[in-house]
């Protein structure tokens, strides 16, 4: 898992605030951001765009076999979320007592993702909550 401060820091706007970008040529919206528009297949003008973070569960699973740094939280619920603005993104789904299934509407929440051990940085991230 990434231990360096910089690698987490440079993704902060995306990880905290779902800052996407949009191709000014074809209108495709990308989250996470892309330098080159995949649809146009070339370098076009890309502009930042904040997403609502609202979306729909496209698929989901509860992981019982965690990656490093996620042992304490395991098992945790992961989803592919289809955001209202178009892009699909993987994210944690927090368990708030509401049922999660394909088609469940979600909204963004702000949570701890993982920490670099007891003394290292805490990495914060968007997660999704069923509404």
């Amino acid at each position: 898992m990434e231990k360096a401060s910089a690698s987490s820091w440079r993704r902060m706007e995306e990880r905290y605030n779902l800052l996407a970008n949009e191709c000014k040529n074809c209108g495709a919206v990308y989250f996470p951001q892309r330098i080159v528009c995949r649809k146009c297949g070339r370098h076009t003008k890309m502009e930042s765009r904040k997403l609502s973070g609202n979306g729909t569960v496209y698929s989901y699973t509860r992981t019982h076999s965690p990656a490093d740094a996620f042992e304490e939280e395991s098992p945790y619920l992961i989803g592919v979320i289809e955001l209202d603005e178009g892009p699909r993104v993987e994210g944690h789904i927090v368990e708030n007592g509401k049922e999660v299934t394909i088609g469940t509407k979600v909204r963004p929440v702000f949570r701890r993702m993982y920490a670099d051990g007891e003394e290292g940085l805490i990495h914060y991230h968007f997660k999704f909550a069923p509404v």
Partner: peptide
């Protein structure tokens, strides 16, 4: 708090 919640996440949710 949830296992992934702390004073910072609570502050952010309230602030938003």
């Amino acid at each position: 708090p949830g296992i992934d919640e702390d004073a910072a996440t609570i502050a952010v949710e309230a602030a938003r």
